[in-house]
Computed example of a mutant assay.
Amino acid sequence: MGDPMRIRAAESNGIVDVKILMKHDMESGQRKDASGKLIPAWHITIVTVKAQDKEVFVADFGSAVSKDPFLNFKYKGAKGDKLQVSWVDTKGDKRTDEATVS
């Protein structure tokens, strides 16, 4: 399981602006270590965001996404919505964090 995500969500005129910073090394499987061996691929494969238990955002990631991915998206919502952000990586590791819309 990775480090906690930083989640910021603010509502304005019925639109919630969500910003998420995920801590993950996101190895592509194409880099080599000091001895010349390939570093195995290890990256987030899917990100899901739910608001009030309803999916508002789903993304499929690949090996080309950079280290410590940052997401920014908007959806129709309200102050006080409970956000749940989850990801799964290629090793089966999972992370889920929550935030409340301000």
Rank of each mutant, 00 (worst) to 15 (best):
residue 1 M to E: 12
residue 1 M to W: 07
residue 2 G to A: 15
residue 2 G to N: 12
residue 2 G to R: 14
residue 2 G to L: 13
residue 5 M to W: 03
residue 7 I to E: 04
residue 7 I to H: 09
residue 8 R to I: 08
residue 8 R to F: 13
residue 8 R to C: 08
residue 9 A to F: 07
residue 9 A to R: 09
residue 9 A to H: 08
residue 11 E to I: 13
residue 12 S to H: 05
residue 12 S to Q: 12
residue 12 S to T: 12
residue 12 S to P: 00
residue 13 N to S: 08
residue 13 N to M: 00
residue 14 G to F: 05
residue 14 G to I: 05
residue 16 V to Y: 02
residue 17 D to K: 13
residue 17 D to S: 15
residue 17 D to G: 03
residue 18 V to T: 10
residue 18 V to S: 13
residue 19 K to C: 02
residue 20 I to R: 11
residue 20 I to P: 08
residue 21 L to R: 15
residue 21 L to D: 14
residue 23 K to G: 06
residue 25 D to V: 03
residue 26 M to F: 07
residue 26 M to K: 04
residue 27 E to R: 06
residue 29 G to Q: 05
residue 30 Q to L: 15
residue 30 Q to P: 00
residue 31 R to S: 14
residue 31 R to M: 12
residue 31 R to I: 15
residue 31 R to E: 15
residue 31 R to C: 03
residue 32 K to A: 08
residue 32 K to W: 01
residue 33 D to W: 05
residue 33 D to T: 10
residue 33 D to Q: 05
residue 33 D to V: 03
residue 34 A to C: 00
residue 36 G to I: 14
residue 36 G to A: 10
residue 37 K to Y: 09
residue 39 I to K: 02
residue 40 P to G: 05
residue 40 P to I: 03
residue 41 A to S: 14
residue 42 W to K: 07
residue 42 W to N: 12
residue 42 W to S: 01
residue 43 H to P: 00
residue 43 H to I: 07
residue 43 H to V: 06
residue 44 I to H: 03
residue 45 T to Q: 14
residue 45 T to L: 02
residue 46 I to C: 03
residue 47 V to N: 04
residue 48 T to R: 08
residue 49 V to K: 11
residue 50 K to Y: 02
residue 50 K to P: 00
residue 50 K to I: 00
residue 51 A to L: 06
residue 52 Q to T: 13
residue 52 Q to E: 15
residue 53 D to Y: 10
residue 54 K to T: 11
residue 54 K to C: 06
residue 54 K to M: 13
residue 55 E to S: 10
residue 55 E to G: 00
residue 57 F to S: 04
residue 57 F to M: 08
residue 57 F to D: 01
residue 58 V to S: 15
residue 58 V to G: 02
residue 58 V to M: 12
residue 59 A to V: 10
residue 60 D to M: 03
residue 60 D to Y: 04
residue 63 S to Y: 09
residue 63 S to P: 10
residue 63 S to I: 09
residue 64 A to D: 14
residue 64 A to R: 14
residue 64 A to Y: 05
residue 66 S to G: 13
residue 67 K to R: 13
residue 68 D to R: 01
residue 68 D to F: 04
residue 68 D to Y: 04
residue 68 D to Q: 03
residue 70 F to E: 14
residue 70 F to I: 09
residue 72 N to K: 12
residue 72 N to H: 15
residue 74 K to G: 04
residue 74 K to R: 12
residue 75 Y to L: 01
residue 75 Y to C: 09
residue 75 Y to H: 10
residue 77 G to D: 08
residue 77 G to W: 06
residue 77 G to E: 11
residue 78 A to G: 01
residue 79 K to G: 09
residue 80 G to D: 09
residue 80 G to S: 07
residue 81 D to K: 12
residue 83 L to S: 05
residue 83 L to M: 02
residue 83 L to Q: 03
residue 83 L to R: 02
residue 84 Q to Y: 01
residue 84 Q to F: 01
residue 84 Q to D: 08
residue 84 Q to R: 11
residue 85 V to Y: 06
residue 85 V to I: 15
residue 87 W to G: 05
residue 87 W to T: 11
residue 87 W to D: 12
residue 88 V to N: 02
residue 88 V to R: 02
residue 88 V to K: 04
residue 89 D to R: 00
residue 89 D to Q: 03
residue 90 T to C: 06
residue 90 T to H: 00
residue 90 T to E: 06
residue 90 T to N: 09
residue 90 T to Y: 04
residue 92 G to L: 07
residue 93 D to V: 04
residue 93 D to Y: 10
residue 94 K to F: 10
residue 95 R to F: 00
residue 96 T to C: 08
residue 97 D to K: 01
residue 97 D to I: 13
residue 101 V to A: 04
residue 102 S to A: 15
residue 102 S to R: 14
residue 102 S to G: 14
